[in-house]
Every structure is written in structure tokens, then in C-alpha cells.
Simulated assay, not measured.
Amino acid sequence: MRAILSLSFLALVSAPSFAADIIFDPDPVPPMVALPEAPFSWSGRYIGIDLGYGKSKVKQEYATATTATDLFNIKQGEGAFGGVYAGFGRQARNLYFGFEGDVQYASIKGKSTNVAGTTGEFTPTWLGSTRLRAGYAINNVLGQDMGHLLPYLTGGLAFGGFKATTKTSAGAEWSASRPDTGYTLGAGIDYAINNNTIAKLEYQYMDFGKRTFSDETDYVRLRMKAHTIRAGVAYKF
């Protein structure tokens, strides 16, 4: 009996020490694995700035008697422009559809002087457009990594402010200005520098049709066209 009690007492005394010697290893922490980046997508909104160069052509259709009949036949006006643009789009597989608008401060001046020394000048003071865009996303060409390219076609409404001015050799001046609308068609290519920075190069043809420029007494009817090319960079979010 005494021996049994002694063994029980020893067991009780040694149990905590035995428990303390037991080491519970925690579950091993799995190694950190870098998550793969999401594939690039052209879907999203963007806003950017651009600079460009344009050439215009003006044809005089009609003028009152006080204006020379061919004064505003300006075969080439030219100059720079710059402004802002913004838009949004969605990519489905490789197809892309979007909408874009832009407003530009323009200085595309055209001038003509007749034999009498009278000068006619035509100037778009600002230009803009709202357009649809449709493109095809390209990640490689003939198996070669080309980054992320988006060639596209675009077209829609063009608008702007225009001014027609005449000045005789004697110093007499006449001028009229008006805002107007037309249509634009073009094509371009976007290049993704990274997920949020998009560069662009774009051509647009603008046609504003026949428009009348008038003050209270005299007027001229002109047909206006322009070709523009621009480069821009935008932030996509």
C-alpha cells in the first residue's frame, strides 16, 4: 500500500515537468508566393493632353459685291493646336469599343491676297470633336512581343470656332466669326507605356461644309476642310 502511494505521488510531481518538456511545433508558414499580375486591359476611363499640327483648305462659294469673288480661295492654311481629351472604352477579347471627346486651342491660319492688295484671312480659333472609336488590341506581331498596341478607327461630330477677315490696302477691315459643326473621320494607334499611361498618335479629317460668315451688311459663303495629326499622352484609371 505504501509503495502504491509513493508511485502515485511521484507521478503527480513529475507530470508538470513532463508536460513542460513537450514541444508543440506550430504549423509551418507557407512560403510567400507572388500573385500573378492581372492581364492588361484597355477597358477603363482616361484623360490626357495632346499637341498637333493641321492644314486647312477654304473655298469661296459666294460673296456680296463688296468682297472679291476669289479672295477666300485659300488652298493651304497651317498651324499648330493643343488641348485636352478624355474618354472611356471596353475591351472584349481583342475587340475594343469606346467614346472620346477633345477640345483644342487652334492657330491654323490661311491667308490670300489678290491683285488689288486686299487680304483675306481665315482662322479656326478652336476645334473639338466627340467621336466613337473601334479598335483591335494587339499584344504581339508575328510572334514578337510588341507591348500593348491598339490600332483604331474613329469618327463622329466635329465642331469649332472660326473667323473670316478681310483687309484692303487702304486699311479698311471687315470680319465675321461663328461657331460651327461638321463631321470628322480618322485613325490612330494607342500604345500602353504601362498599365496607367497611354500614348497616342492620331490623324483626323474634318469637314465643316458650306457656311456663311456675315455682319449686318456683307457676307461670304465658304467651304472648310482640315487635316490634322496629333500626339498625346493620357492617364488611364
Rank of each mutant, 00 (worst) to 15 (best):
L7Y: 12
S8K: 12
S8Q: 13
L10V: 09
L10S: 10
L10F: 12
V13L: 12
S17L: 15
S17N: 06
F18P: 00
A20V: 09
A20K: 11
I23M: 05
D25H: 11
P28I: 10
P31G: 01
P31M: 01
M32F: 14
L35A: 14
E37Q: 14
Y46P: 04
Y46R: 00
Y46I: 03
D50N: 15
L51F: 15
K57Q: 10
V58K: 09
Q60L: 03
Q60R: 01
Q60H: 01
E61W: 07
E61M: 09
Y62C: 02
A63G: 10
T64M: 04
T67H: 12
I74R: 04
E78C: 02
G79T: 06
F81N: 02
G87H: 11
F88K: 01
F88G: 15
R90Y: 14
R90E: 15
Q91V: 13
N94S: 12
L95M: 11
Y96Q: 01
G101F: 13
G101Q: 05
Q104M: 13
Y105N: 10
A106P: 10
A106V: 11
K109N: 09
G110N: 06
G110F: 06
K111D: 10
S112D: 12
T113E: 05
N114Y: 10
V115E: 11
G120L: 08
P124G: 05
T125P: 07
W126S: 13
G128Y: 13
S129E: 04
T130Y: 08
R131T: 11
A137F: 08
A137S: 15
N139Q: 13
V141W: 13
L142M: 11
Q144Y: 15
M146F: 14
G147R: 02
G147K: 02
L149E: 03
P151R: 00
T154Y: 06
G155C: 06
F159D: 00
G161N: 08
G161P: 03
A164I: 14
A172D: 08
E173L: 11
A176M: 13
R178D: 14
R178I: 07
R178A: 12
G182A: 01
Y183V: 12
L185T: 10
G188I: 07
I189G: 05
D190S: 08
D190Y: 09
Y191H: 05
N196L: 01
I198F: 01
L201H: 01
E202V: 10
Y203H: 03
Y203L: 03
Y205I: 06
M206Q: 13
F208W: 08
F208Q: 05
R211D: 07
T212I: 05
F213C: 00
F213Q: 03
S214A: 15
E216M: 03
E216C: 00
T217L: 12
T217Q: 07
D218N: 13
D218G: 04
D218I: 06
Y219I: 00
L222T: 08
R223Q: 07
K225D: 11
A226T: 05
H227L: 03
T228V: 08
T228Y: 00
T228D: 00
T228L: 04
A231Y: 04
G232E: 02
G232Y: 06
A234D: 01
Y235H: 05
K236W: 04
F237S: 00
F237Y: 06
